[in-house]
Amino acid sequence: MALPTGETIGILADNLRLRNSVLPIPGKNATRWAGGLGIPRGGETVLYTGMMYQLIPYIEAVNKSQEKIEDTWLVNFIKVGRLMNRVINISGFMGRPSKSLQADYNKMLANIARLLRQAGVEFGYLYEDELYSGALIYDLGMDDVLAAHAQKVYAIFKKYGVKNLITVDPHTTNMLRSVYPALIKGYDLKVKSYLEVLVERDIKPKHSLGAEVAIHDSCVYARYENVLNEQRTLLAGAGVKVSEPPGAGLFTHCCGGPAESLFPKKAKQKARERVEQIKSVAQNGVTMCPICFVNLQKAARGEIKLDDISNYLVRAYL
């Protein structure tokens, strides 16, 4: 028996409405990546993580539980779970995030902040006041819940006098740059991905990595936000030879991640197909979206080495 779609969406939407995130994260865990970096609070230009990187270890923990109960009689309890979740956050009982995974994702965010600094960008961060963008709820078609949440997110930017947002992942870039303007009257924030900012600032490499990687483009960067050249420019500058797998660039194939919340098995199958394509051109793969990274890494089963683009860039440009 598949996971009950309506109840699962209901839990995620209730969480966003009641707790400002599809999976609530303790504030100290969401902001730990910035420890020791001395990033000022607020400012006209802020690095907006949108919580995507921080959420992945939590999503992973919950998905492990989902995979165990998918196709079993236990799915019947999800209906009860939704009722309980309105009172108490049940995702906290569905699995603990792995410490090592949290450390990996925190490192990626710290990399991005250090790269921006190296490129001469002055930026702040909203720390525990930063909210999730609502990307998953948008995909699931819960537009009324998203519209209310977007107003909360925008109000926080306004409270801090933010004018420019630097985003770190494709889904948050799309939400803030292309979805929010249709939801919020008078929306006036300028939004750029850190990849775009680094290219715009003409960041100069200090080392040549002499590596070869297969690039896995994000569907959202490629087909929603037209971010296709920046990642290639930065990798070329880093001395990385980029191999294009079957289905790359504008026609990139998907990692399967968007199906994960409702159909974990379908997501896994799609990710495995993509790993085979990456494997056909190189033994190392590079991603630029935390969802792509986690899905492909799981499906790769150690047969290829995948890494987030920030881990390559930080070695070459710092």
Binding site: T5, Y138, D139, L140, G141, M142, D143, C219, R223, Y224, L250, F251, H253, C254, G256, P258, A259, L262, F263, K266, K270
Partner: peptide, 28 residues
Amino acid sequence: YSCLLCKMCEVNCPANVHIAENVRSLRY
């Protein structure tokens, strides 16, 4: 709900149908 909203279909559509947005409308 299985649709990935990846827009592979949309970018190939000769009639420029906004397929992903239509799927989201059905979900709504």
